[in-house]
Write a protein that binds this DNA or RNA. Structure first.
Lengths: 154, 154
DNA sequence: TATTGTTATACTCTATAACTATA
DNA sequence: TATAGTTATAGAGTATAACAATA
């Protein structure tokens, strides 16, 4: 007779806390929270998602909402909402596209350009905090694995 | 004179789409979406977060909300809400703890036990889809790196 | 017909604080 | 004083659908 009680593994052969999904989601949430906390403690009235849109514009000013949505991996309503917030805060302005009257160019204002260096610095702070103790090679490996999983689930 | 126009890297030395935060968050969101889609297409009226709570109970029935919150990495109000949903759906029941009248034990109902095998199978489906093309070693590496980043940002 | 951008709606999860009952 | 659990509130993000204007 086998009177051994079942182990946790036998009771649940797919344990939540060892699953990629759990580890991925909880880390992403904490990292987003850290980013928002860093922004808040620096006195910036911005979320990480708003920061992301500005980041794309610092790299290339004058993109359309559709381009921004594609590069930020967000849907159109989300980008519309974020741009509305950024416009209200005075960091971006909409300019009608003379060639295609459906379309708009999103342009940084002077204020939007002025905060660039400060906010990039906060981004680096967040990155260094998150990747502390990881070698450059390990960071590259993590990025590669995340990209491969992303392509699998896209 | 140097008339070379500035490169994107010079314009924005911290590009969003190469940052760990961006790659992590977008992958986590897509994976969560895939999980919810798999559950929905299988006809299960559950979200991945609700699935996660059930998973913890399949491993060890009769935990308190505080234990579940700690193991699911959620705060108390979140767990209360998820347990309310699961109770409404008939998968769990609350039992007062005779030793500590503040506390409750969360117990699986017959229905909650009955869906275990089916839902674990869906979990495996999601995992295999996400990790397709990754070796067991690579999956282990990804988990290790995620855990190290998590501890950095916790 | 397809695309751009917006609006509306509903849902999930998160964070914070405050409250009760009990220890 | 501290803990267990709940409730309330506010906020962010996502998905879907639908719409008007334009191509």
């Amino acid at each position: 007779m086998d009177a051994t009680p079942p182990t946790r593994e036998e009771l649940c052969p797919f344990p939540l806390r060892q699953s990629i999904g759990f580890l991925l989601v909880r880390t992403a949430l904490r990292l987003r929270l850290l980013g928002n906390t860093i922004l808040q403690e620096a006195g910036e009235d911005l979320t990480v998602d708003q920061w992301g849109i500005l980041n794309l514009l610092w790299e290339s000013d004058g993109q359309t909402p559709v381009e921004l949505a594609r590069r930020a991996d967000k849907d159109k309503p989300n980008v519309t909402r974020l741009l509305q917030i950024l416009e209200d805060k005075g960091y971006v302005a909409r300019q009608p596209d003379p060639k295609d009257r459906r379309s708009h160019r999103i342009l940084l204002t002077e204020a939007g350009r002025a905060i660039k260096d400060r906010l990039l610095e906060l981004g680096s702070t967040c990155h260094e905090r998150a990747c502390a103790g990881l070698s450059a090679q390990e960071v590259a490996t993590l990025k590669d694995l995340l990209n491969r999983v992303y392509r699998n689930v896209f």
